[in-house]
Simulated assay, not measured.
Amino acid sequence: MHLWIVSRVYRPEPGAAAVFLGAVADSTIETGGQVTVIGAKPTPEVAQKYRKIPGEKLVLASVLRNAQGYIRGYLQYLSFDLPLLWRLAVHPKPDIIFVEAPPTTGAVVSIISKLRKIPYVYRAADVWSEAAKHATNSKIVLCLLKYVEKFALRNATELIAMYPSVAKQVRALGVKTKTTIAGVGAETNIFNYRSVPQRKEFIYPGSYTELHGASVLIDAFKIFSDKNPGYKLRFIGTSTPDVKAEMQHKVNQYGISSQITFEPAVIPDQLAGELNSAVATLATLNPYGQYSFAFATKIYSSLASGCPTLFAGPGPTAKFIANNPDSQSVVAQYDAQQIAAAMQKIARNPLTAAQRQELAEWTAQNYSLKSAADITVARLTAAAHNAR
């Protein structure tokens, strides 16, 4: 099978999508296939981390990035999607295309798929038209995004959903395209247990936007640190300028700027080392929006690194932790006092080295990314075969 992976992000860039797509490429190559990644040129710093893999070809083009160096925002997406039409039109045909969000990229692939008669599978890791409600009140933008997303989803040969709650939300849009739940997990070749000195740190890895509602962690940490001096809270990831400014303002008001830092996203190898030494990771989901179906996939990487998670909010992440005591993790209500109490509980009884090793092994056995990638490749292979 010759597979195109079409995505604006790909390894070794930071982010769950980049890691997952890399695992899909590896699984395809392991089964004797070839992979062509049609994507965006990474920053020079990230490009230096790429390792050439036999069977994988990168076809990358320059794109517009925001001030933080990420392809995020309307203009940034368009800088990738508009030239993509021509790039896909002239490149030698594959057997099948696997496309990553945003929906505008899916729409471009849908057009080329129709013109060149190439089947495509869309990765529905999220429902963008729902997530956008936390970022804008513009009815025009929301209606347009919903139309484009439905167009991309409906024309796909098949959808790959990461978890059932997303598949259910896709159905709520009126999309009836066949959907496979591939699951998700940790890239255990990267995220695994290493015995390192533990630091008095909580880490929030990944994105923190309006829909995550991570600002409550600032309030919670202030309460916690008043009784537990010496701890730090590190946000390692991306945000929107407004949300980050609001959180930084709150930090300054509380006078705890030496204890809370906002750091850029790092490549997975580097993040794994940070997780190995943290007392726990933090994750939140804003319960006051319409995004309670989302799952915080970042927790898998944390658990695979032997680092427990404190999650605050509703939805499938809370249910996962509650139903899996082996995760050694904690669920708290989306409330600063409750989160602070949970942080104190973790700080008083941190996992031992043996417990962290056990947690990492349990995660690798039950929630490895390879399993999700193998399921995805099996569906891609079947769709390519059926099309032929």
Rank of each mutant, 00 (worst) to 15 (best):
K133E: 13
L173T: 03
H212L: 06
K93Q: 13
N366Q: 10
A382C: 06
G106E: 08
K41G: 01
K93V: 11
G306E: 03
Q355E: 15
I218T: 06
G273C: 06
R8A: 10
T238R: 02
S371N: 09
Y193I: 06
D335Q: 05
E56N: 05
L145F: 03
L142I: 09
D95W: 06
A353Y: 11
I321H: 05
A124W: 00
K244V: 11
Q365L: 09
T309S: 15
A296C: 00
V24C: 13
V9A: 07
G313T: 08
S207F: 01
D126F: 02
A131W: 00
K176D: 05
N366F: 04
T105N: 12
G273I: 01
K298N: 03
D219R: 10
E149N: 07
K114A: 15
S7Q: 04
G237T: 02
V141C: 00
I96G: 03
V59A: 14
G255Q: 08
A387T: 02
P325T: 08
E30P: 09
S327V: 07
V9Y: 12
A341K: 12
Q365W: 04
R171P: 01
N228I: 08
H385F: 06
T36I: 09
A383P: 08
L142M: 11
G174Q: 09
L21T: 09
V196M: 11
Q337E: 13
K49D: 14
I111N: 03
S302W: 01
D326W: 07
S129Y: 03
T352D: 02
L153A: 02
E13C: 10
V127Y: 00
R11D: 05
A131L: 15
E158C: 01
Q34G: 11
R116I: 07
Q48Y: 12
K178E: 12
E100T: 00
G174K: 10
R8Y: 10
P287R: 07
Q333A: 13
R388V: 14
V99P: 12
N228A: 06
V279M: 14
A342E: 01
D226K: 10
N324M: 07
A294N: 02
S368G: 14
N189A: 04
A40G: 08
H249K: 15
I375Q: 05
V279D: 06
T297E: 00
L82M: 11
A294L: 13
G32M: 10
N192T: 14
R194N: 11
K244T: 06
I71W: 04
A18L: 03
P325D: 11
T43D: 14
E361F: 02
K93W: 06
L60W: 11
